[in-house]
Design a binder for these strands. Structure first.
Lengths: 199, 199
DNA sequence: CGATGTATTTGACGCTGTGTCAAAAACATG
DNA sequence: CATGTTTTTGACACAGCGTCAAATACATCG
């Protein structure tokens, strides 16, 4: 066995950074190979294809992101938790200069588009998975809040609504890039779901 | 002057159909040229580039779609109007086999991704424009409903919320493709914004 | 310590797709 | 019928994805 000459995880991080900033379409394997100091062929050998590389880089990111979301949802009153959730979400896809957008939404739309390619099903699955896990986190938070009397309603429906709004915010961010307006929409959503009273 | 040998609008329709079904990335100008019975070079001469062709085809579609939305929003009680709005929205991006998704959201994410290309700014502008016009239509409908005592709240904020949800639905459609669930989210949103009482 | 085997690296190749260009063709106009 | 303008046409250059065989480097075993 000949050992790898590069660090697997570091290449994934470099690749995801490129993909996030320039999109899947706007990133060539030559770009990644140059930035990572690796031959293009080695990337194919190690990861299979451009989309497979993106997916692996994405899933690596997704775990980190989920952990951060879980932390944001874990402290304070229910309203504080949901507010922190929206804050992290918006801050995440307004990060970078220029803002890089939501990698999940962007990836889903870029890769999930072409049907019947086989790997695209894996891609869709990966994105659907993250969204489902986020929804579950929010739902658990709402259920716990309901048990403490901070929420009165259908936790599943409310969680789905909240996550739908965050996906919509990811789209509006691309269209307008008006961060204050995004935060207004988030605040309005919280009021709608939790009621307008403070706390 | 030598006259065109093809029908400008028909090519736009053929092109948009391809783009909608297979995505911008998944559609080559050779595909469109073949389907339209036109040489590839003629497309470049007439439309400039692939993205420019997509944009022109998109804007042609957008006018038709806006007209349909306006019609859906124009009859019945406020609740009926907003319900018709969501119905048309979901039906639109569940149309085709397999469902083609929301062309605005897909186009925005596919083209708006690569920054600093110049034409991409035009693309973003076109999508942002449609979203803004849809929001205005919904807001007008809500304002009119408020005047008739059917709605009590901030029409601008509510319209923005509703449109944000439709963008989120477009994303969830790609992720899960579960149409009944999409319609549930829509119904839940209507209840949140208009209140749970019938009418 | 040297031989063997296995996985990685490397560079060249084929293919598809975008976009450009100059020459040929077709028609409107005078 | 001659002229000029625009479209058409086919060839070309270029970038990017993916593949392959040969070369390479190392672990392992005798």
């Amino acid at each position: 066995m000949r050992p790898r000459e590069f660090d697997h995880d570091e290449v994934l991080r470099i690749a995801f950074d490129q993909f996030w900033r320039n999109g899947v379409r706007g990133t060539s394997l030559s770009d990644i190979a140059r930035d990572a100091g690796v031959q293009r062929g080695s990337l194919y050998n190690a990861f299979g294809s451009k989309e497979a590389l993106f997916l692996q880089a994405y899933e690596r990111y997704a775990e980190d992101y989920l952990a951060a979301l879980q932390k944001a949802l874990g402290a304070g009153s229910l309203r504080k938790r949901i507010t922190a959730f929206f804050d992290l979400t918006i801050t995440n896809f307004r990060s970078g200069t220029p803002p890089r957008g939501c990698p999940t939404t962007r990836g889903l739309m870029e890769l999930g588009a072409a049907e019947g390619e086989g790997l695209d099903d894996d891609a869709r699955q990966a994105f659907a998975n993250l969204i489902a896990r986020i929804t579950a986190l929010v739902q658990d938070t709402l259920s716990a809040g309901a048990a403490r009397g901070e929420f009165d309603g259908n936790a599943a429906a409310a969680a789905l609504h909240i996550v739908t709004v965050t996906r919509g915010l990811a789209v509006l961010e691309r269209a307008f890039g008006d961060e204050p307006q995004l935060r207004k929409i988030a605040a309005h959503t919280i009021d709608l779901v939790l009621g307008k009273k403070g706390g």
